[in-house]
Write a protein that binds this DNA or RNA. Structure first.
Lengths: 222, 222
DNA sequence: AATAAAGTTGACGGGGCGTCACGTCAGAAT
DNA sequence: ATTCTGACGTGACGCCCCGTCAACTTTATT
């Protein structure tokens, strides 16, 4: 056998065509990942699945992201960035704590309904809390809500209770209710937000009747 | 080359010693899995990790379980089986809906505190809802609670609200609060149960002050 | 034009998964 | 007691996925 045969192990046949810019490729990968995650769920999708939904080669993925987890977190960051301005706006606008809580639930349920696949990928297919909370953007989003709650408590708008548990309750109700909402035939984000707000502010015992109501009834319930 | 060389590929060196019974081996694997999942989390543990914590060989695992997911679900089934009698007892004992809800939270938080590793493995490392709800035992546990809620609503103990969302709210609050509870220095399951019950029954607006209280204060708060 | 920098590629080594042919043993059948 | 049989244990194997990297191409710089 000759030298050529021995060294024949190496060598991509043709590499390096660059038809897109760096930013474009990152966006292409992100979009493909978003779509594939939504379809298969986080656990079931492989990096190759993502790349296959793309004109790129497998190695290129790793020029932009360290791992599957990192793309996923990037997607969550994007989502957090999309929601936060709305939450800020809501906080500025709300004059009562009821309005603020209600607006927060509404924004959250609206987001979930607008990006069902991603929400379900979070819920069903991965290290839920770790991925949800480990990135600065997402943490920041939750932190802002917590600060608001603490301020409300300090200002006497809420009784002097444990802000940590209060936060947990809001997050828990929101995520779990969103799950059920999406299973319904025609998810109604306003109904969900109304229910969550009423339950949260008044408790079961003092809950107004909040099921199956139209816009007209909303006034009565909140 | 002769025939022996060709066929030399096969053959475990020494196989088949049977020092334990079938049931014992299943229990050995289950116990090892429970321990390793709690330590490393679901996602991070490999079937080989489980087997390594055992005197058995890798293939044996698959005589008892189809996959990593199946052992995990078996563990959840065991947990569900341990909790359900207590829930039944509580349901029989409780005379008011407050007592029932309070008892349910208490049992749940107690369980979480008694098996932290497993709870965190559920929360942090896997297809949360899928694993939590896909096994008959676990589904049955949730179903019972839902039936209770529907009955309470039908009997007028709760306002006529959406049992599905009510259920979601309870589950959401319980799981998310349990997470925070475990992060505390000295998790206090009674405090957590008191908070959850008060919030749930009365709402934030009507919440008694439920932080940092001893057994004496419990009477006042619930 | 020559050189450097940035970007792309696919083959490769590493490792986990589930299978399977082989080996062993306990108890049933004779 | 001996043979037979099927249940069980074993570890090597083939498959697939992951992340890396040397080779290669294009763009920027001098």
């Amino acid at each position: 056998m000759d030298a050529d045969t021995l060294h024949a192990k190496a060598g991509p046949k043709s590499a390096g065509k660059r038809e897109r810019t760096k930013v474009q490729n990152r966006q292409i990968i992100l979009a493909a990942a978003h779509q594939v995650f939504a379809e298969l769920g986080y656990g079931a999708t492989t990096v190759r699945d993502i790349i296959r939904a793309t004109p790129l080669a497998s190695g290129t993925f790793y020029n932009y992201f360290k791992s599957k987890e990192e793309v996923f977190q990037a997607i969550q960051d994007e989502s957090a960035l999309r929601i936060r301005p709305r939450l800020h706006e809501e906080r500025a606008k709300a004059t009562t704590i009821d309005e603020f809580i209600s607006g927060t639930f509404q924004i959250f349920f609206d987001y979930v309904a607008s990006d069902q696949g991603n929400f379900q990928a979070i819920r069903r297919n991965t290290d839920t809390l770790r991925v949800r909370m480990d990135t600065p953007e997402v943490i920041a989003g939750f932190e802002e809500l917590r600060v608001d709650l603490e301020r409300a408590i300090a200002q006497g708008m809420f009784p002097p209770i444990d802000a940590d548990y209060l936060m947990a309750a809001i997050v828990g109700v929101a995520f779990e209710m969103a799950e059920r909402m999406l299973r319904r035939d025609r998810p109604d984000t306003e109904e969900a937000a109304r229910f969550a707000t009423a339950l949260f502010m008044n408790g079961v015992r003092n809950l107004p009747h909040v099921q199956g109501v139209g816009p007209k009834a909303a006034k009565d319930n909140v």
